[in-house]
Each structure stands twice: as C-alpha cells, then as structure tokens.
Nucleic acid binder design. Sequence first.
DNA 1: ATATATATTTAGCATTACTAAGTACATATT
DNA 2: AATATGTACTTAGTAATGCTAAATATATAT
Lengths: 111, 111
Amino acid sequence: MKQKYEQQMKKGVLEMLVLRLLSENEKYGYQLICELKERSDGTFMLKEGTLYPILYRMEEDGLVTNRWSEPKGREVSKKYYRITGEGRAVLTELWELWQSFAGSVGSIMKK
Amino acid sequence: MKQKYEQQMKKGVLEMLVLRLLSENEKYGYQLICELKERSDGTFMLKEGTLYPILYRMEEDGLVTNRWSEPKGREVSKKYYRITGEGRAVLTELWELWQSFAGSVGSIMKK
DNA sequence: ATATATATTTAGCATTACTAAGTACATATT
DNA sequence: AATATGTACTTAGTAATGCTAAATATATAT
C-alpha cells in the first residue's frame, strides 16, 4: 500500500532532481542512479527503466545534450549528459513550482 | 510546460489531502473541491473528474464510507464521506511518507 | 568458470490526473 | 417565462510516467 503511494509521489520531481545533479557537472546515467540513491538516503532508488527514458525525454525537449566518452585504457565508453541553458531555466522554474507546491501541501496538512 | 509538471507533482498527494480534510468531519464531494481550493490558495483546484474517482477508490480500499443526506426543505440530497479507522491509519502513514519524501527532495536540491 | 558490478536499451503494464460530456435541481437574471 | 448560473454527482476516454522485466556488453572478483 505504502509502496503504491511512494511511487506516485515521485511523479514530476524526478526530472527536477536529475537536472539538479546535472547542473553541477556532466554525468552519465548509471552515475545519476547511484548519486540519487546516496544523496537521498535511499529514497530515490531509480531503476534503469525509469532513469533512461527520463534522459531521452529531456534530450528531446532540449534540456540536456549528450556525448560518448572516449574510453581511456580498458574503460568502457559512457554516455555523458550535460544540462543546457534551457535546462537550467526549467530547473529554476521547477524548483519554484515545487516549493510553492510543498508549501500548499503543508498548509492543508498542518491546519 | 509548467502545467505538465504541476499535474504530475500532484500524483499521490491528493488522497492524503482529501483524507486530511475528512479527518476533521464528514464532507461531500463538492465541498471538498471548494475547501481544497481555498485552503491551498488555488494550488489544488480539482475538477470533478479528478476528485470523485479518488473518493470511489478510497471507498473500495476501505478508507472512507458514505451516506446520502436526507434533504431538509428544498435542499438537494448530498453524498457525505466519512473517514474510517483504516483511513486514519493510512493518513498517518502518508503524512510520514510525504515528510520523508519532501526532506529527501530538499537534501538533493539544496546541496 | 561463475558471479557480481558497471553501463545502456527497450517493450509493455499500472496508476492517476485530466478533458469532456452528461444528468439533475435550485436560484438569480433578463 | 426563459435563460443562465451555481450546486452536486457520474463516467468514458486520454496522456503522462514510474515500474517490471528482459536483453546486451564489458570488467573485475571469487
């Protein structure tokens, strides 16, 4: 039961979190999954089938671009994502939206 | 664009908000729509097609029950919803879940 | 040799907030 | 009287998104 609601609550914030991590520096998919897990203390443990479609969508929308790394030594080539100017603008918008949204939830719940 | 994300952010919290309002006293559907709008300063302006299915789902899950009011005078009969014991338990769970969730979002966004 | 970790892709499913339309009655306006 | 608006509930269908699950590939550890 709890699981079902937890899943739903995530809708709409994952893009924001991914953009936030990418606003620090370029990162590849698997790295994003690991960082989201660590930095949320296990709240955001995304599956590949969740993260990669998010990245593809954001690329279509012009919020990120990607480049394949040239593997050094025995390294595997990785797909690095970089946030665009529009991505930063949307990130700012989303953060404001989230704060206002969370504030409204709080005002109803705490009354 | 903003609208799209706002819609998604709502997923999973509407049940919690409705249960919270019903935890005060029994209410009918239209009343819930009005109170959600007022008490969130316009953030939660649910359409009928959003609220009523939520109530039906929660009834199926045993979180609420309903009764039709006996109309006094020229009043229209209204369907009042009342929260159950299980509904209160789920409300508590959802509130804890939301707080932890919002905390995780904050910890990633503010770093 | 096998298992685990890293790294990406994609098909299909479930859930839910929405649009949009319909029903019905009461009150207000023209 | 006729029309519009407000109250109150119902339901069919759509879009979006997080999930499961499987496939592919290489590197490292047991």
